[in-house]
Amino acid sequence: MAVYENLVETFVELIRRASTQLPDDVVSALEKGKAEEQKTGLAEKALGTILENVELARSISAPICQDTGTPVVWIHHPVGVSTRALAAQFHEAVRTATERKFLRPNAVDTLTGRNTGTGAGRGIPFLHFEEWDEPRVEVRMILKGGGSENVGAQYKLPDSRLKAGRDLEGVRRAVLDAVFEAQGKGCAPGVLGVCVGGDRVSAFEMSKRQLLRPIVDTNPIPELAELEERLLREGNQLGVGPMGFGGKTTLLAVKIGVLDRLPACYFVTVTYMCWADRKAAVSIDEGGEVTWLS
């Protein structure tokens, strides 16, 4: 399908938007946090600088954060569209976006220590493809920074240190521990993507997929909706605050997905997304029309 063979510039624009324009739902959450912090304190000042930075990045079309992260991408496509052709175009777009300074050259050869210089490398960007019935291609992407990636965690329950059993109370205990352990190192206030269940491959993917959800939404599974709300409240009670300076705003949102598990396994997987919760999405229909979804 020829319409899906000319997407490099659309993908570059997707990357530019994600890197330079923080989505409105994230900005609103940061503004709400700032309003709740003590006036003229370190936490309020940090959030003020963050919001000033977001505005500046948008106005000059430059990266919000110099760590432009790993592009993690979910692509839905109709039957008959070549995923190899889409992947090749996305890699090309990453190289172009790196040349244009929307991305930092962010891929390092792990064995030699040399930066590839192009922004692309083995496993970077990370692309997921799923076929669907709709006659259009939809691309959803997050830019996942490395500092926050380092404070992600995976727990296997039961965990005797945390007195965490194989139930949602155990999940709660594990997630709160992860927030405590992260302190400010993941660039708090963060957004948590959590997966309950799955294995060590599927669970991290599912936890990252949760980050595509809007900051304010309701989990369709009532007991998870309740847990999300409780963890957001309790996570903020820890007092870590923006940048770990202390304060009320430690988390902006908690999003929990679920996968089935093996009888032997019960994983709780936490992806920590920094306040620079960069995400963008685009739809390209069979006529080639491009619709920006965020």
Binding site: N53, L56, A57, A62, I64, Q66, G184, F245, C274, W275
Partner: peptide, 12 residues
């Protein structure tokens, strides 16, 4: 401590 992620404010 600089503000993490404030890449534009700091680049300026």
């Amino acid at each position: 401590h600089a503000i993490g992620g404030a890449a534009q404010v700091l680049a300026r």
